[in-house]
């Protein structure tokens, strides 16, 4: 059994053509997911049960079911519903890209909201009390005290979640999207060379993962400059 390096050299550029789509999926889902996560987190910490419980239920459902199932529900399932077909959003749900971004965003929102909540809960209560004693309002304390510190605390876990999101973009290949994994699967079907193709693709993902980790570490260092004793 030989290792067909020529095939790798030929296929890698083809797979990398999918990287644009991979990144579009990643970035759009990350952004929408973060917005949704912020909303959910605020609902969770609001202290009002009619905000907190729906948020908790949402998070529970989306973290308790496989993301593949969520994608299928949106892509294959939504068209079954008349409500969707006749709505203004139909063009979004008819398109596999729209479905993928939608499902990935909803899923990311659930996971990231817990990460954000963890960050908020990790903020030192004593410091917040000092803010209270100085007369700062609840909102002021949240914006100037909680947010900067919670962001730094949440960053490592958030970085891991971005990497998970990257890996989840590969699932878009199951609904006909030709991002990197989609292209790879097509090539394998034609060439019967799973090792060469899938291993080289795995290496691409690993490199991307590594780059994301480096970026997150950079940001962590910048945000954490006040934690170092040397100036």
């Amino acid at each position: 059994m030989s290792f067909d390096t020529a095939l790798i050299v030929e296929s890698l550029p083809k797979m990398l053509m999918g990287i644009g789509l991979t990144f579009q999926l990643l970035i759009l889902s990350a952004v929408f997911g973060l917005i949704l996560a912020t909303l959910l987190m605020l609902m969770r910490i609001s202290g009002k049960w009619w905000l907190s419980w729906p948020a908790q239920a949402y998070i529970y459902v989306f973290r308790g079911t496989p993301i593949l199932v969520q994608i299928f529900i949106v892509y294959y399932g939504f068209p079954q519903l008349e409500m969707i077909r006749e709505s203004v959003l139909w063009p979004l749900f008819r398109d596999p890209f729209g479905c993928a971004v939608f499902a990935l965003s909803l899923n990311a929102g659930a996971y990231v909201s817990e990460i954000l909540r963890g960050g908020v809960l990790g903020v030192d209560r004593g410091m917040l009390e000092a803010g209270e004693a100085l007369g700062l309002s609840k909102t002021q304390r949240f914006v100037y005290l909680t947010t900067p510190i919670a962001t730094r605390l949440a960053l490592p876990a958030y970085g891991n979640d971005i990497i998970s999101l990257l890996k989840s973009t590969a699932l878009a290949s199951t609904i006909t999207l030709m991002e990197m994994t989609g292209i790879a699967r097509t090539i394998v079907a034609q060439t019967y060379a799973p090792y060469e193709i899938f291993i080289s693709l795995a290496i691409v993902y690993m490199v991307l993962t590594f780059l994301i980790q480096k970026l997150v570490a950079r940001i962590e260092r910048h945000l954490g400059r006040y934690t170092l004793k040397e100036g």
Binding site: M1, A170, T181, P194, I199, A202
Partner: peptide
Amino acid sequence: VFRGTPEILVILLLYFGTAL
């Protein structure tokens, strides 16, 4: 390797690879 590779890729690789 296994934290940086999409799960579906690992499954496909293992399945088709071992078959091959």
